[in-house]
Amino acid sequence: MTSYTHPTYSTEQLVERWESQREIKNLMGKYANCVILNREDELFDAFWAGGENDVCLVFNDGYYKGAEAVRSYYMAERERNALVSKLLRDRFPEQLGGKNDDEIYGIGPFKVNPMACPVIEIAGDNASAKGLWYCQGAYNKVEECGPLAHWTWGFFAVDFINKDGAWRILHLQQVNDVDSICGMSWGRPQKIPSPLPEFMALADFRYPAYTESVTIREQYNPRRPFTGAPRIPEPYETFSETFSYGIEEV
């Protein structure tokens, strides 16, 4: 039979902690929707903890550390989206030629990060939280070869802090095991289609340099040593007592 008296938390604390985990799920849902809408430039101000904190955005092959570095990555994503839209306008003047840069912004890329399987731990002191999601995603960023859809299989592993009553991202790992061209097996060598002249300008596009380029997670290949999921969040009292999804600079 259910015990209705919690050994640690009062009824009000139980409610507050449930609302916290719901808000964190909502936050990550909004993050994913922003990416679908190609509004990456809004992500930092809307969802991150801000410049005074030790923020860190981590990918398979490196990480951005500090507010300026994280923000610069998202702004670059916006620049790239804008470049793709302009290249498509050049290629399809009949359909897009009469539209200005703002009107065409976002045409082309489509990136979906479905957030599934949340395991969320709210710290005992309610000042921080950790969450792990599985993400079987799909994206088309438009490449030198033109539009090309990919499947991804990977994870979002996130540390949050409670900032003035609102949950904010402190560290975010977006790491994939698989980033595979749709219609091809990720268990076999993949042939990337040839570049197209109308998209050659993308070859010159560069994201900001990582704070450190380092292999955080090798992408899957049949010669990769077995690699499990990022560490599952565990109950903890205060953030200093648990592990971090951020990266400590060497």
């Binding site: 259910t2 409610v15 599952i232």
Partner: peptide, 25 residues
């Protein structure tokens, strides 16, 4: 008190099955 206990029961059950996902990974 019963209702919030049941809400957490359901949440913990969902977390349990989600943890299994990562154990499988």
């Amino acid at each position: 008190e019963e209702m919030i206990a049941r809400v957490w029961d359901i949440e913990n059950i969902k977390t349990l099955i989600n943890k299994r996902v990562y154990y499988i990974c």
